[in-house]
Amino acid sequence: MDPHLLRKLNRERRARRAVLHLTELEGGRDRVIREGDPVAGALGEAVAAAFRSGKSGVAEVEGRSFFLNIHLPPPKIVIIGAVHISQTLAGMAESTGFAVTIVDPRSAFATAERFSGVDLVAEWPEDVLKLRPLDSYTALVAVTHDPKIDDHPLAEALRAGCFYVGALGSRKTHARRVERLTALGIDAADIARISAPIGLDIGAANPPEIAVAILADIIRSLRRRPLREDAP
């Protein structure tokens, strides 16, 4: 392995950007591919599949054998709102491999008793996201129902290209939210990325079931996401 490639690979991983180390197993020639870098033909298809699935493996292309080692940043979920839905969602999300942070400035909601073992921050999202910025391997779930708390992180999530952005509320509530986000200067195409009403439509009837619908929606968005084509 080329030392420069190792440095590049580690730099990308530290920056939480998806990256793939490609090695031709005969001869050992290797290269580092960032998400969105063009790779032609059947090898390109194998590379794209690895970026989507996060699974490393060998690909045989035109009689040549390649090892594709994919490094996806560990996916995170930031939940705005320390509510009943979040209690179930946090536990299930951690079981399925997501790192979870819950943010809610209302200290009556954000208590250690209700969220033991969860990374819980009882501060305004504006302040928290300055220190812990969102990125494309983070899902943002806004469930407080309060525009004062939800709107800013929703706008930030769309700007940061979060792979999932969901907001709790009826169609009517969401229509008013769309107006407010438009007034903040967010593009209609970006606003349309918000999952609202939040979660897959499974007829969820109570907060824990809504949590299931949200998590399924997040997993679908992660595994079926379009790949970035403008990687820096």
């Binding site: 392995m1 490393s56 060998v58």
Partner: peptide, 16 residues
């Protein structure tokens, strides 16, 4: 650098 590139059966560590 040693890298697991293929696994069959109940291999304890995944490819990569």
């Amino acid at each position: 650098i040693a890298t697991v590139v293929d696994t069959w059966g109940s291999a304890p560590r995944p490819a990569g």
